[in-house]
């Protein structure tokens, strides 16, 4: 067998299993902190009332997440032990750069909506992304003009439909 063939015969998914296990543990961890630091919630289990209390389902869910996270992590460890690589089942990290940048700018948009108002903040967001997604790193006057046009028309259209027609308020 060719040395490189090893990579073709290994069990897939070690990386995604470990990440999935970590993801589930993170939720379980936050949940357990929320449960253990909440004295009233824990005390509700001891209540003499016939109602089993608000802690019952919470505990079932937290134990489910903890045990499930353990099982998924164990599966990842087992796959890794069988020769699975950490990158198996995952895409190249560079794939996620654009979505990450998009989320960061959306957070910025959310932060700036109140101080700047909907139209300016959404206009800048739209124009920047229209330019970025169409022209990329190139300098293009045509794309810049189109992006500016989109940056004006799109938020204006949304404002018109939501605030004007449907009377649904927009952030100011």
């Amino acid at each position: 067998m060719h040395a490189d063939d090893a990579s073709d015969t290994i069990a897939p998914g070690a990386g995604s299993d470990l990440l999935a296990g970590g993801f589930l543990f993170a939720w379980a961890g936050v949940g357990w902190i929320g449960y253990l630091t909440n004295e009233r919630l824990r005390a509700s289990l001891e209540s003499p009332s016939p109602d089993p209390g608000p802690a019952l389902l919470a505990l079932i869910v937290l134990w489910g997440l903890t045990l499930g996270g353990t099982a998924v992590t164990a599966s990842g460890v087992w796959r890794r032990a069988r020769g699975g690589r950490l990158r198996d089942g995952l895409e190249d990290a560079r794939t996620h750069l654009r979505p990450a940048a998009f989320v960061v700018t959306l957070i910025l948009l959310a932060v700036l909506l109140r101080p700047l108002g909907f139209l300016p903040a959404a206009g800048v967001f739209t124009a920047c992304w229209l330019y970025g997604l169409t022209a990329g790193a190139r300098l293009s006057l045509r794309h810049a003009a189109l992006a500016l046009l989109g940056g004006v028309l799109l938020p204006l259209g949304l404002q018109l439909v939501f605030a004007g027609l449907l009377l649904v308020p927009l952030p100011r």
Partner: peptide, 12 residues
């Protein structure tokens, strides 16, 4: 690009 930007704004 226009579609995704518009959807993101709609989400907000």
């Amino acid at each position: 690009a226009l579609l995704f930007t518009a959807i993101a704004l709609l989400c907000v």
